[in-house]
Simulated scan of single mutants.
Amino acid sequence: MTTRSYGQFCGLARALDAVGDRWNLLIVRELLPGPMRYGELVAALGGIATNLLADRLRSLESAGVVERRLGETGGVTYALTPWGGELREAIEALVRWSTPLMVTGRDDDSFQPRWLAVALPALLNGRTSKTPAELGIDVPGLFMTLRIDKDGPHVTLAPDRRPATILEGQPEVVLGLAAGAITIDQALSGATVHGDRQVLATVLPGAQA
Protein backbone atom coordinates (compact mmCIF):
# COMPACT_ATOMS: atom_id res chain seq x y z
CA MET A 1 0.00 0.00 0.00
CA THR A 2 1.32 3.42 -0.92
CA THR A 3 1.46 5.66 2.13
CA ARG A 4 1.39 9.39 1.70
CA SER A 5 3.62 11.39 4.01
CA TYR A 6 4.28 15.04 4.72
CA GLY A 7 7.96 14.11 4.91
CA GLN A 8 8.49 16.28 7.97
CA PHE A 9 10.35 15.35 11.16
CA CYS A 10 7.59 16.79 13.34
CA GLY A 11 5.31 14.99 15.78
CA LEU A 12 2.17 16.61 14.36
CA ALA A 13 3.13 15.82 10.78
CA ARG A 14 3.90 12.19 11.60
CA ALA A 15 0.66 11.86 13.57
CA LEU A 16 -1.23 13.19 10.55
CA ASP A 17 0.66 10.74 8.33
CA ALA A 18 -0.95 7.99 10.44
CA VAL A 19 -4.46 9.32 11.08
CA GLY A 20 -4.88 12.49 9.04
CA ASP A 21 -6.65 11.03 6.00
CA ARG A 22 -10.37 11.76 5.65
CA TRP A 23 -12.56 9.42 7.76
CA ASN A 24 -9.66 8.10 9.86
CA LEU A 25 -10.43 10.01 13.04
CA LEU A 26 -14.14 9.29 12.65
CA ILE A 27 -13.31 5.59 12.52
CA VAL A 28 -11.33 6.05 15.73
CA ARG A 29 -14.32 7.89 17.25
CA GLU A 30 -16.55 4.90 16.48
CA LEU A 31 -14.11 2.48 18.11
CA LEU A 32 -13.45 4.47 21.29
CA PRO A 33 -16.53 3.02 23.08
CA GLY A 34 -15.58 -0.51 22.01
CA PRO A 35 -14.97 -2.92 19.10
CA MET A 36 -17.29 -2.96 16.08
CA ARG A 37 -17.91 -5.21 13.12
CA TYR A 38 -17.29 -4.01 9.59
CA GLY A 39 -21.01 -3.75 8.82
CA GLU A 40 -21.59 -1.76 12.01
CA LEU A 41 -18.89 0.69 10.96
CA VAL A 42 -20.46 1.09 7.52
CA ALA A 43 -23.84 1.85 9.11
CA ALA A 44 -22.45 4.22 11.74
CA LEU A 45 -20.33 6.18 9.28
CA GLY A 46 -23.16 6.54 6.73
CA GLY A 47 -21.76 8.10 3.59
CA ILE A 48 -18.44 6.26 3.41
CA ALA A 49 -17.94 3.96 0.41
CA THR A 50 -17.29 0.38 1.49
CA ASN A 51 -14.07 0.15 -0.51
CA LEU A 52 -12.82 3.38 1.08
CA LEU A 53 -13.62 2.09 4.58
CA ALA A 54 -11.69 -1.10 3.84
CA ASP A 55 -8.75 0.99 2.64
CA ARG A 56 -8.83 3.22 5.72
CA LEU A 57 -8.99 0.22 8.06
CA ARG A 58 -6.00 -1.35 6.34
CA SER A 59 -4.10 1.93 6.68
CA LEU A 60 -4.93 2.25 10.36
CA GLU A 61 -3.96 -1.39 10.94
CA SER A 62 -0.66 -0.81 9.18
CA ALA A 63 -0.02 2.23 11.35
CA GLY A 64 -0.70 0.24 14.52
CA VAL A 65 -3.82 2.21 15.47
CA VAL A 66 -6.44 -0.49 14.79
CA GLU A 67 -6.35 -4.26 15.12
CA ARG A 68 -8.64 -7.14 14.20
CA ARG A 69 -10.09 -9.30 16.93
CA LEU A 70 -12.34 -12.35 17.10
CA GLY A 71 -15.83 -11.28 18.16
CA GLU A 72 -17.61 -12.87 21.12
CA THR A 73 -19.99 -14.71 18.78
CA GLY A 74 -17.41 -15.33 16.06
CA GLY A 75 -16.43 -13.23 13.10
CA VAL A 76 -14.01 -10.33 12.95
CA THR A 77 -14.33 -7.10 14.87
CA TYR A 78 -12.16 -4.00 14.68
CA ALA A 79 -10.75 -2.44 17.83
CA LEU A 80 -8.28 0.21 18.82
CA THR A 81 -4.86 -0.92 19.96
CA PRO A 82 -3.71 0.47 23.33
CA TRP A 83 -1.70 3.07 21.38
CA GLY A 84 -4.71 3.86 19.21
CA GLY A 85 -6.81 4.33 22.34
CA GLU A 86 -4.48 7.13 23.37
CA LEU A 87 -6.09 9.21 20.62
CA ARG A 88 -9.02 9.75 23.01
CA GLU A 89 -7.29 12.79 24.50
CA ALA A 90 -6.81 14.43 21.09
CA ILE A 91 -10.35 13.64 19.95
CA GLU A 92 -11.87 14.95 23.17
CA ALA A 93 -9.87 18.17 22.79
CA LEU A 94 -11.26 18.61 19.27
CA VAL A 95 -14.80 17.98 20.54
CA ARG A 96 -14.39 20.75 23.13
CA TRP A 97 -12.84 23.05 20.52
CA SER A 98 -15.83 22.45 18.23
CA THR A 99 -18.38 23.97 20.64
CA PRO A 100 -18.78 27.25 18.68
CA LEU A 101 -19.37 25.16 15.55
CA MET A 102 -22.12 23.15 17.25
CA VAL A 103 -24.26 25.98 18.62
CA THR A 104 -25.78 26.60 15.18
CA GLY A 105 -27.70 23.34 15.59
CA ARG A 106 -27.95 20.04 13.79
CA ASP A 107 -29.62 21.18 10.54
CA ASP A 108 -29.67 18.18 8.18
CA ASP A 109 -26.54 16.52 9.58
CA SER A 110 -26.79 12.87 10.57
CA PHE A 111 -26.41 11.79 14.18
CA GLN A 112 -25.68 8.50 15.94
CA PRO A 113 -26.60 8.26 19.65
CA ARG A 114 -23.35 6.33 20.23
CA TRP A 115 -21.42 9.55 19.58
CA LEU A 116 -22.62 10.90 22.92
CA ALA A 117 -20.34 8.34 24.60
CA VAL A 118 -17.38 10.28 23.20
CA ALA A 119 -18.79 13.82 23.39
CA LEU A 120 -20.01 13.78 27.01
CA PRO A 121 -16.70 12.87 28.69
CA ALA A 122 -15.00 15.43 26.44
CA LEU A 123 -17.38 18.25 27.38
CA LEU A 124 -17.32 17.30 31.07
CA ASN A 125 -13.54 16.98 31.27
CA GLY A 126 -12.33 18.06 34.71
CA ARG A 127 -15.76 17.78 36.33
CA THR A 128 -15.62 15.71 39.53
CA SER A 129 -17.78 14.96 42.56
CA LYS A 130 -16.68 13.68 45.96
CA THR A 131 -20.05 11.95 46.20
CA PRO A 132 -20.61 9.86 43.04
CA ALA A 133 -23.67 10.83 41.01
CA GLU A 134 -25.14 8.67 38.25
CA LEU A 135 -27.57 9.90 35.62
CA GLY A 136 -29.40 7.81 33.06
CA ILE A 137 -29.58 9.39 29.62
CA ASP A 138 -32.38 8.20 27.38
CA VAL A 139 -32.14 9.48 23.81
CA PRO A 140 -33.92 8.01 20.78
CA GLY A 141 -32.14 4.78 19.91
CA LEU A 142 -29.94 4.37 22.99
CA PHE A 143 -29.85 4.36 26.79
CA MET A 144 -26.63 5.09 28.66
CA THR A 145 -25.46 6.10 32.11
CA LEU A 146 -23.26 9.07 32.88
CA ARG A 147 -21.43 8.90 36.20
CA ILE A 148 -19.46 11.69 37.83
CA ASP A 149 -17.12 10.78 40.69
CA LYS A 150 -13.77 11.87 42.08
CA ASP A 151 -12.04 10.59 38.94
CA GLY A 152 -14.27 12.49 36.50
CA PRO A 153 -16.95 11.47 33.99
CA HIS A 154 -17.62 7.90 32.86
CA VAL A 155 -20.15 6.72 30.28
CA THR A 156 -21.60 3.20 30.07
CA LEU A 157 -23.55 2.20 26.97
CA ALA A 158 -26.59 -0.05 27.43
CA PRO A 159 -25.98 -0.60 31.17
CA ASP A 160 -27.36 -3.61 33.05
CA ARG A 161 -29.45 -1.41 35.34
CA ARG A 162 -31.11 1.99 35.20
CA PRO A 163 -30.25 4.65 37.79
CA ALA A 164 -32.93 6.41 39.83
CA THR A 165 -32.57 9.69 37.93
CA ILE A 166 -33.01 9.76 34.15
CA LEU A 167 -32.86 12.57 31.60
CA GLU A 168 -35.05 11.72 28.61
CA GLY A 169 -34.79 13.92 25.53
CA GLN A 170 -33.14 14.74 22.25
CA PRO A 171 -29.34 14.54 21.91
CA GLU A 172 -29.10 18.28 21.18
CA VAL A 173 -30.54 18.97 24.63
CA VAL A 174 -28.10 16.61 26.34
CA LEU A 175 -25.15 18.16 24.50
CA GLY A 176 -26.37 21.68 25.31
CA LEU A 177 -26.57 20.89 29.03
CA ALA A 178 -23.17 19.19 29.02
CA ALA A 179 -21.57 22.19 27.32
CA GLY A 180 -23.33 24.61 29.66
CA ALA A 181 -24.87 26.28 26.60
CA ILE A 182 -28.46 25.94 27.86
CA THR A 183 -30.10 25.87 31.28
CA ILE A 184 -32.35 23.16 32.64
CA ASP A 185 -35.35 25.47 32.25
CA GLN A 186 -34.53 25.85 28.55
CA ALA A 187 -33.91 22.12 28.26
CA LEU A 188 -37.27 21.12 29.69
CA SER A 189 -39.01 22.28 26.52
CA GLY A 190 -37.45 19.26 24.82
CA ALA A 191 -36.62 16.92 27.69
CA THR A 192 -38.07 15.27 30.79
CA VAL A 193 -36.34 14.60 34.09
CA HIS A 194 -37.38 11.50 36.03
CA GLY A 195 -36.07 11.53 39.61
CA ASP A 196 -33.82 13.86 41.57
CA ARG A 197 -32.91 17.10 39.80
CA GLN A 198 -29.99 17.54 42.18
CA VAL A 199 -28.32 14.57 40.50
CA LEU A 200 -28.81 16.33 37.18
CA ALA A 201 -27.21 19.49 38.58
CA THR A 202 -24.22 17.51 39.87
CA VAL A 203 -23.63 15.83 36.52
CA LEU A 204 -24.41 18.48 33.89
CA PRO A 205 -23.22 22.13 34.07
CA GLY A 206 -26.29 23.65 32.44
CA ALA A 207 -28.59 21.95 34.94
CA GLN A 208 -27.23 24.09 37.76
CA ALA A 209 -28.88 27.25 36.47
Rank of each mutant, 00 (worst) to 15 (best):
Q170A: 13
E172M: 05
L124G: 00
D138N: 12
L124W: 07
L123E: 01
A164Y: 14
G169N: 13
G176C: 04
P140C: 12
D107C: 06
R88Y: 02
L116V: 04
T165V: 08
A119I: 12
A122R: 03
W97A: 13
D185M: 09
P171W: 08
G136H: 08
T128N: 14
A133I: 08
S189N: 13
R114N: 00
W115T: 02
S98K: 10
I182V: 06
W97Y: 13
G152T: 08
T165K: 03
A178Y: 09
E89S: 11
I182T: 04
L87A: 14
F143V: 01
P113M: 01
E86Y: 10
I148N: 03
P121C: 06
G126T: 00
T99G: 01
D108V: 08
T156G: 03
P140Y: 12
T104E: 14
T156P: 02
R127S: 03
W97F: 09
T145Q: 05
P100S: 09
L188G: 08
F111M: 03
T128R: 15
E134C: 12
L167S: 07
G85F: 10
L157T: 06
Q170H: 14
L175D: 03
R106E: 05
T145F: 12
D108L: 07
P121W: 00
R161T: 09
G176D: 05
D149T: 05
T165S: 08
P121D: 02
A93W: 02
A117D: 00
S110F: 15
P163S: 04
G126Y: 00
L120C: 02
D138F: 05
P100C: 13
E168M: 13
S189Q: 10
L87V: 07
A90W: 14
T99P: 08
E86S: 13
L157P: 10
G136C: 07
L167E: 06
L146I: 06
G152Q: 09
Q112A: 14
T156W: 01
I91N: 08
R127L: 14
T145A: 01
F111Q: 01
T99K: 05
P121Q: 03
G176Q: 04
L101G: 08
R162M: 15
G176V: 00
A187M: 11
D160C: 11
L175T: 04
V155F: 14
A117V: 05
A90K: 03
K130I: 07
D149R: 06
L135D: 06
A90M: 14
V95E: 05
L177P: 13
P163C: 05
Q112C: 10
T99F: 00
W115I: 00
A117L: 01
S129Q: 10
T99L: 08
Q112Y: 12
V174C: 05
T165E: 03
P132S: 02
A187W: 15
R88W: 02
D138Q: 11
I166M: 04
F143Q: 07
M102I: 10
L116R: 11
F111I: 00
L167P: 07
D108T: 09
R147Q: 11
L188W: 04
D107F: 10
D185V: 12
E89G: 07
G105S: 07
R88T: 12
H154R: 15
T131F: 01
R162V: 15
G180C: 10
A187Y: 11
V118R: 00
F111V: 01
P132F: 09
T183Q: 12
V173N: 09
G85H: 12
P132N: 04
A178V: 09
V118M: 01
D138T: 03
V155S: 00
